[in-house]
Amino acid sequence: MTSLIDLLASAQRTETGFESEIPANWLQGRTAYGGLSSALALAAAKQVEPDLPPLRSAQVAFVGPLAGPVTVSATKLRRGRNAAFIQADIVSEAGLGLRTTFVFMAQLESAIDHDGTAAARHAPPPADAELYTGPKEFFTGNFNFFDLKADTRPTQWLRWGRLIDRAGLDPEVELMALGDALPPAAFRLFAKMTPLSSLTWQVNILQPAPVTRDGWWLLEAETDSARNGYSSQTMRMWDADGKLVAEGTQGVAIFG
């Protein structure tokens, strides 16, 4: 098992990012788990500019499969007085696999102070709860999960999750690594196993540099529409105190 921390520590630095290799325990099928790819891209993006403000938005395109040796590179698109836009790509032998745009933005004084978000109604699992961890040869082996099945709607996933090996990890990189850990919500509509693949992922960070307790984050994904081989879903992420820290959308291809 290679942790995300070990993967970043062993990466070979380049002028624009780093080179690494996707371990088998971070794969989902023939490609890297999307949260890992996004976390690696963010790690490279944060090397481009010194003293970046907090991450506030990420636009992720899962262009193609990523496996084996990869090159992660980042480029500053623009840095203004308050915000910085940085693009990060990951390329493997098969070509471009991931393209991201990260937006880092400082907090500004504003007369607007509105929060219409709903707090999570569920507490993190107790210390003696029976947790699920996936097999070591699959990316879910890097996480602990606790499902809230009794409280979910038919097209919704609701699950507590945490990265097992997270000590010393950049909190924003940890957030990206965990944010895509749920199966696509359209999966709950299937009567039989059907292949799916995430296409795009838009994430907005509501709380600058969010942290949580004991690594636990509450993850939600719910399908709004699924037809003609394409699904659109909304996604949310709360900290252990019930505060909404991130929300977004994802487009998913359905092959069957």
Rank of each mutant, 00 (worst) to 15 (best):
R162N: 07
R153F: 14
A185Y: 11
T155P: 02
R166W: 10
W160M: 01
A150N: 11
N144D: 12
L175K: 00
T152V: 10
A186W: 11
R159Q: 08
L178T: 06
P183R: 15
F145H: 11
R162F: 01
P184C: 13
R159P: 01
M176D: 04
R153I: 07
E172P: 12
N142A: 01
L175H: 01
T155H: 12
P183S: 15
L182S: 03
G168W: 13
N144V: 08
L163M: 03
N144H: 10
G161L: 08
A185M: 09
L182T: 02
F146C: 03
A186D: 09
W157G: 15
A185P: 12
N144R: 05
F146Y: 07
F143R: 00
L148A: 06
A167V: 06
F145N: 05
R153E: 14
R166Q: 10
W160Y: 00
W157K: 15
F143Y: 08
L148H: 07
E174R: 06
W160L: 00
D165S: 05
A150W: 07
L182R: 05
V173H: 03
D180W: 03
L169Q: 11
L178D: 01
A167M: 08
N144F: 02
A167K: 09
T155R: 14
T155W: 06
P171T: 08
P171M: 07
M176W: 07
P183H: 15
D180Y: 01
I164T: 04
R162P: 01
P184G: 02
D170V: 09
L158E: 05
L175C: 05
G179S: 08
R166L: 10
G168Q: 14
K149R: 15
L175S: 03
A177Q: 02
G179I: 00
L178Y: 04
A150M: 13
W157T: 14
T152Q: 14
L158R: 10
D170M: 11
R153S: 14
L148D: 03
E172Y: 14
G161W: 02
T155Y: 06
V173M: 03
G161A: 15
G161S: 12
M176I: 04
L169Y: 08
D180L: 01
L178H: 06
A186F: 06
N144A: 10
M176L: 13
P171D: 09
E174V: 02
E174C: 09
G168I: 12
N142V: 00
Q156E: 11
L178R: 09
F145W: 07
A150F: 11
L163W: 00
D147Y: 10
A150C: 12
L163F: 00
R159F: 03
A150G: 14
G168P: 14
D151G: 06
F146A: 02
Q156P: 05
P154Y: 10
A185W: 06
A150H: 11
A150E: 11
L178N: 05
Q156I: 05
P154Q: 13
M176A: 07
L148C: 05
N144Y: 01
M176H: 09
N142M: 00
A150I: 08
P154C: 15
D147L: 05
F143D: 02
P154V: 13
L175E: 02
I164C: 01
